[in-house]
Design a protein around this nucleic acid. Sequence first.
RNA 1: GUGGGCGUAGCUCAGUUGGUUAGAGCGUCUGGUUGUGGCCCAGAAGGUCGUGGGUUCAAAUCCCAUCGUUCACCCCA
Length: 422
Amino acid sequence: MSDQIQVIRGMHDILPVDMPVWNQLEDSYRALAESYGYQQIRTPIVEKTALFQRSIGEVTDIVEKEMYSFLDRNGDSLSLRPENTASVVRAGLEHGLLNDQQHRLWYCGPMFRHERPQKGRYRQFYQLGAETFGMAGADIEAELIFLAARFWNRLGLSNIELQINSLGTSECRNKFRGVLVAYFKDSYQSLDEDSQRRLESNPLRILDSKNPEMQTLINEAPRLIDNLDQRSSDHFSELRDILDYAGVSYELNPRLVRGLDYYSHTVFEWVTSTLGAQGTVCAGGRYDGLVEQLGGRPNTAAGFAMGCERIIAMLIDQNQANKVKSCDVYMLVRGEKTVRVAQKLAESLRNQMPRLSMLVHSGGGSFKSQMRKADRSGAKIALILGESEIEAATVSIKFLREDSEQIEIPQTDLNDRLAEMI
RNA sequence: GUGGGCGUAGCUCAGUUGGUUAGAGCGUCUGGUUGUGGCCCAGAAGGUCGUGGGUUCAAAUCCCAUCGUUCACCCCA
């Protein structure tokens, strides 16, 4: 064992037993996104490092210490994508999709961050997401929220709460940053070590601190939402009005701050208290400045990303996860010479019944152990094909889940009989 | 990057104050008279006790290191 090569730390194999719930999640999301008129987009897993430096922000933790970056054979610095928004914008610009056009897009795929793994946090993890372009109104933010809410509903999940906040324009965010720094500098001695550090790098994040000793100080801190300019404030009230009108409940969290630099105006998070420390299951907001920042003409944008592993953990906890499904039919083949006849028969059945799921088993062993396997496979019906059946051009049929007699029918009738049974 | 818990069979775990050839359940495979299953019974395969050092007459057990895992901080989906 010790000299075997193992998976990379923080990365995981998804085994056959795990696949049903993954398919459940992805199929359900695809159908939902398409029902809202969203179109799928796929971008490469590797991008130029500069793309993420320019979009996510040079001084964020993601870019500073979590990216899988490397030089390719040409000496270019490339990175495994830590998130998908930057790539979608890049692709949109590159193919001329963002010139005053409106788009609703969705995506699905793996992302990579070199963090210390823990529950709900992995080095390769999957996200489902949506990005919209060219729509400036709060109604598109509401639509993204409706879509996510419907997703939880379809998956049968509960205990997920919506939190919203507004960061305003980048101008009022910068102004607020000054106000906040001034406030915390007055109480510098009361700040914990992390917050003292963040005062320089990302003061807004101090508001996010979980340290209980900091809570009073944070609660009394100036609020971003009280420092919005008129336009930002109007935009945010519009969103709240829409949500109230639609009857979507939410919590206004003035301390909600996103870690990525490109957000502006609305930010939202769907959180759960049931997953431990990594309780954010979906997060997003508006990022109007990003298109221009990446070299395009100014264009508005909003989107979100959801963490698949976290949602799957909830599906399992709440007993909503799909289980492995077995084949309907187990064809049990006796004797070496019958294998080719059995396969030919199986192929002909598949021609006539495209939706038939059938496993053909021709292993050795006693009849009894083969029968046991057939039963444990979970199939409903066993088809038995041995030398006596071949000679008579028949097939024996047995229902596995109930007490019933075995019946022997001509091979030519098999198609019709199976159609009745399945 | 920091701190705590944990590494014994494919899985879940026993293993008593260090003491002979390392255990169970589940799973897998094979049988229980040649072609009949789910239950039951019997048997088998499968582990250099994560790895490397050290202490000792003797280490799965004690010590150190290392790797992995897990939870939290941090960060974020």
